[in-house]
Design a protein around this nucleic acid. Structure first.
Length: 205
DNA sequence: ACTCCGATGGTCT
DNA sequence: GACCATCGGAGTG
């Protein structure tokens, strides 16, 4: 299929509006599964992937959330209100991308942990320095690197012409697994990680 | 399959 | 100065 046809078909499914992101964070985390994150750079190059794994990070009650002790320089974007990107550097090496949720001032977001590459695979391969499609967006650090997201993308709107999420396939509740979140030491028993059961693109089963 | 560990930097106490 | 919402490679079984 021609790339342009593919893109138009994807766009016809509908760009998610701000209201989508204002829902409770846990619901956004679940509802993001199967949807397509798409970026268009200044050269018209498109990168898109299907979201297959997410984690919900809630407000101050959630000790694992960056927002748990209030607004700081790093987490400011989390308080911006639903529909923007929150990007932070992890372990001094990687970047991780989050979809900010709920009302302004809440401090909640959904971490995008893994994607299935859809468009712009060549660019992703260059960005990652590997060819294995299954590994391109496996894990949050790798996902950000494949898409080329860095701190300059912090606060970027997800309802703009060059960065947005569109409806993909509907995922049945039976095909979603919820588990404990990865790599945290606080509030570690909450089942706030979600992934598509039969996907080969998740970071871990 | 696993466990261990080093790289690396910004944020917060 | 400690703590990380990580990754990939090395070593082991």
């Amino acid at each position: 299929m021609d790339i342009k046809d593919n893109i138009e078909k994807l766009l016809s499914k509908g760009i998610l509006k701000k209201e989508f992101y204002l829902q409770p964070t846990q619901e956004v985390a679940i509802n993001l599964l199967g949807k397509i994150l798409m970026t268009i750079d200044s050269d018209g190059q498109i990168i898109a992937g299907k979201i297959v794994e997410t984690e919900a990070y809630l407000n101050a009650n959630d000790k694992a959330s960056h927002s748990h002790s209030g607004i700081t320089n790093r987490n400011e974007a989390m308080f911006e209100g639903g529909g923007v990107l929150y990007v932070y550097r992890s372990y001094g090496i990687h970047h991780c991308i989050n979809v900010v949720t709920e009302a302004k001032g809440k401090g909640a977001a959904v971490l995008i942990r893994a994607m299935e590459p859809i468009e712009g695979l060549d660019l992703m391969k260059v960005n990652r320095g590997i060819d294995d499609i299954e590994k391109l967006c496996k894990g949050p650090g790798n996902t950000a690197k494949a898409f080329g997201f860095t701190k300059i993308d912090n606060f970027r709107s997800l309802t703009s012409y060059n960065l947005f999420i569109i409806a993909g396939e509907d995922i049945s509740e039976n095909d979603i697994i919820s588990t404990k979140r990865v790599g945290i030491s606080q509030s570690k028993d909450l089942l706030l990680r979600f992934y598509i059961k039969n996907s080969n693109f998740v970071s871990r089963k």
